[in-house]
């Protein structure tokens, strides 16, 4: 009956016998959630700094680049395809895993390119990141989308790792933990962007 009697560990195995009151969550998934919390805090800091800047003095008034609308749609769609890849994994449908993972990755890249064009649009409109013609509120847009973009790059790396596993047929209904974590992270990045976008829509 007692778990700890079953599998007496030797000195060189680290196993997790004898667990009683633990969470049922995989430690690595849990760690991912904690990582997400820390990213959230960073963006909370950045956006509250923006509010402070925006409400004091004369903020720079600017238009939200049209491109942000497009990239927002792109990233939402990529979240959907990510979810489809995950459900395909649960149903053991390897063909669909590969297909939807590929689409998600491509959409991720398109998103990044779109963000770049959005920056170009901002420059056209006279909203600069730095220099004598810049103002903090304008610079903040670059910081939001830039720092988010860096996280998107990390998400893309994660997607590619998962994609590679998928093509090695190492993802199936038995082994979903990697793709599940990948999906969690990607959805988070999606939600984070939508938050930033709506935030900018409300305060510009």
């Amino acid at each position: 009956m007692k778990v700890n009697k079953l599998n007496p560990p030797t000195n060189n195995t680290i196993s997790q016998e004898n667990k009683g009151v633990a969470l049922s969550m995989h430690p690595r998934k849990f760690a991912l959630w904690l990582f997400i919390v820390s990213i959230t805090m960073m963006f909370a800091a950045l956006t509250s700094a923006y509010i402070v800047k925006f409400t004091e003095g004369q903020p720079l008034v600017f238009d939200i680049p049209i491109m942000f609308w497009i990239t927002s749609v792109v990233i939402i769609v990529s979240s959907l395809t990510m979810h489809l890849a995950y459900t395909a994994a649960k149903k053991n449908n390897t063909k669909n895993i590969k297909m939807f993972m590929t689409i998600t990755s491509v959409l991720g890249v398109i998103f990044l390119v779109g963000q770049w064009y959005a920056w170009a649009e901002l420059v056209q409109a006279g909203v600069f990141f730095a220099g004598s013609k810049s103002a903090p509120t304008g610079s903040f847009i670059y910081v939001f989308s830039g720092v988010h973009g860096i996280h998107i790059i990390s998400g893309l790396v994660f997607l590619l790792i998962t994609l590679r596993l998928a093509f090695q047929n190492k993802i199936n209904s038995e082994k979903t933990s990697v793709i599940e974590m990948c999906a969690t992270y990607w959805h988070f990045l999606d939600i984070l962007w939508i938050y930033l976008f709506v935030f900018l829509l409300l305060n510009h």
Binding site: N18, K19, G20, V21, P27, F30, A31, L34, F35, S38
Partner: peptide, 21 residues
């Protein structure tokens, strides 16, 4: 952050049997 994530995960997930909070 790396350290902290590990500490939290370990305390929550890896307590031995009977070790409630």
């Amino acid at each position: 952050l790396l350290g902290g994530i590990n500490y939290i995960t370990t305390v929550i997930n890896m307590r031995t049997k009977g070790l409630s909070f």
